[in-house]
Structure formats: C-alpha cells, structure tokens
C-alpha cells in the first residue's frame, strides 16, 4: 500500500499540469464552440449548433479544407515516394552513406520559420534562386510566380514541406529495411528472383509497417502544418493557401469570432482523431511476421 502511495507522488505533479493546462483548455474550447463569445467581453450567449452551421457553410472554410486536402495529397505522395527511394539507395553499409543520411536529414532540425524564409528567397520572383536558374537556362520569362500564383502556390509550399521532412522519413524507412533479415533476400536471390521481383515479393511486404507509419505521420503533419504557411504566405494570395489551422487562427485573431473558431477547431479535432484512429487500425492490419 505504501508503495502505491509513493507511486502516486510520482504521477501527481505531471497529472496536475496536464489536467490544468492541457485537458481543461481542450474541454473549454468545446464549450465555447457552442457560444457566441468574441474572446474579450465577459458575457456571451449559448447559441447551440449555430457556429458549426456557419463554419460548415463558410466558403473560406470549404476552401481551406480543399486546400488542405491538396496540400496533404502532394506532400504524402512526394514525401513517401522520395524517402522510400532514398532509403533503398542508402540502406547499405558504405562509409559515404552515413554523412549522406545526415545531410538529407539536416533540414528537419531547422525551424519551420527559417525554412519558410529560406524558401521565400528561393521562390522570390525578382532575385530568387529558381529565377536565377531559369535565367541561366535562358528562359527568363518562363518562371512561374511560385507562391504568387493562386493555382500553384499551395503545391509550391507542399514542395518545401517535402524538402524539410523527407530525410526524417527516410530514416524511418532505413530502420525498417535494416530489420529485414539478409537471409530472406539471399534465399530469394538463390531461387532466381530478379531485383525487382525481390523488392516486390520480399522487401515491400516486410516494409509495409514502416510505410504505414510514414504515410500516417505525413498525413497528420500536413493537417497540422501552420508555421510554414503562416511564414510564407499567411494564407494568401486570395485564400489560395489557407488551410484549416491558418483559417482557425485568422478567425480567432483577425475577426475575433472565438465561438466560430472553436467550432472550426472541434471539427478539425474530429478529423484528426479519425485519422489517428485509422492509423492505429492500419498499423494493426499490416503486421507481418516471418
């Protein structure tokens, strides 16, 4: 009994901090989503589902959701494919591979604000790096306005996200590859399997758990992305890069509709919880043993 009492002393400080500064704000947010509070005045009214109705019918919210899906699709596709290819190339034991892995991983330790500003320079229409490249190739007039053009801005930012986090996902794949016993591949090779065949029938099925982790993590990260868009375009031009998190931020701190913003947050939470749940399901389903 004494032991259990002492153990509660280990738990209490953290539990208290978590309850007051994490759980309470989360629940309070849910409550405010049913009110018309503006975040400043002491009084507010309970308005039921009205905020949810307003948010779901708001054109900007719909646009933000759609942009977020485009952003997610581009990042998940680009990042998963690229990190898998790099991992396959770098999973061996050559001495040069270690510094290359570190180099590819490196952007992950930079702050998103730094990455955003570095790429604002790369994309700059006047003196940017890409413009310089186009000039070098004698195609001055052909460079698009990377983050100024409404049609491509969200993809330009997706490319930056891929640049920053591919190396990190590559490490997850490399860990997965190194967990595959070499005998399995050797046996397949002896049985006459070509390289592509070995990859498809041996490596890929055993790599599936890593792929699930990478895809799930990347999906969730691309919904959480806030810093990058806030730094590079702040949702512009003309809401072309507004995603759900920046939409909530603008609703709360530019238009002072705390109630509506809370409703947006609650919808966002439902979406993320569903994704996390799917992630757990997928991780279970894909477990392969050998």
């Amino acid at each position: 009994m004494r032991k259990r009492l002492t153990l509660w002393v280990f738990v209490l400080p953290g539990l208290l901090l978590y309850a007051v500064l994490f759980v309470y704000p989360a629940l309070a947010g849910l409550f405010y989503s049913f009110t018309d509070w503006d975040g400043l005045s002491p009084s507010f009214q309970i308005t039921g589902w009205k905020n949810y109705d307003t948010v779901l019918h708001s054109l900007v919210f719909q646009k933000a959701l759609w942009n977020n899906l485009k952003f997610m699709a581009a990042v998940v596709f680009g990042q998963t494919l690229l990190s898998l290819v790099l991992a396959l190339l770098l999973s061996g034991n050559r001495r040069i591979y270690v510094p290359l892995r570190a180099l590819f991983f490196f952007p992950a330790i930079l702050s998103t604000v730094s990455v955003g500003l570095i790429w604002s320079f790369v994309y700059d229409p006047g003196i940017g790096l890409l413009q310089g490249l186009f000039n070098l190739l004698g195609a001055e007039g052909l460079a698009p306005s990377w983050v100024g053009d409404r049609r491509i801005a969200i993809y330009s930012i997706a490319a930056v996200q891929v640049w920053a986090h591919t190396g990190q996902m590559m490490i997850v794949f490399i860990a997965g590859l190194q967990g595959i016993p070499a005998e399995l591949k050797d046996a397949a090779a002896i049985d006459g399997g070509g390289r592509w065949r070995i990859f498809r029938s041996v490596t890929w099925p055993l790599l599936a758990p890593s792929a699930t982790i990478v895809i799930a993590y990347t999906t969730i990260q691309s919904f959480k992305a806030f810093d990058l868009i806030f730094t590079m375009t702040d949702g512009g031009p003309n809401n072309a890069t507004e995603i759900i998190t920046t939409y909530i931020y603008h609703l709360a701190f530019s238009s002072y509709s705390f109630g509506e913003a809370s409703a947006g947050s609650a919808l966002f939470l439902v979406l993320l919880a569903a994704l996390t749940w799917l992630q757990f399901k997928a991780l279970r389903a894909d477990r392969i043993s050998y």
Binding site: L21, F22, Y24, P25, A26, A28, G29, Y32, G39, K224, F226, T245, I248, Y249, A252, F258, A261, S262, S265, A266, F268, L269, L272, A273, T276
Partner: peptide, 15 residues
C-alpha cells in the same frame, strides 16, 4: 496525442 496544440490555440491564449 490525438489533440494537437493547434486545436486549443484560443483557449490556451485565454487561459
């Protein structure tokens, strides 16, 4: 783990 900080930005600010 299911609740990202972006969801709570308003109430964190207020609290």
């Amino acid at each position: 783990l299911m609740v990202p900080s972006q969801v709570n930005m308003l109430t964190l600010y207020d609290l």
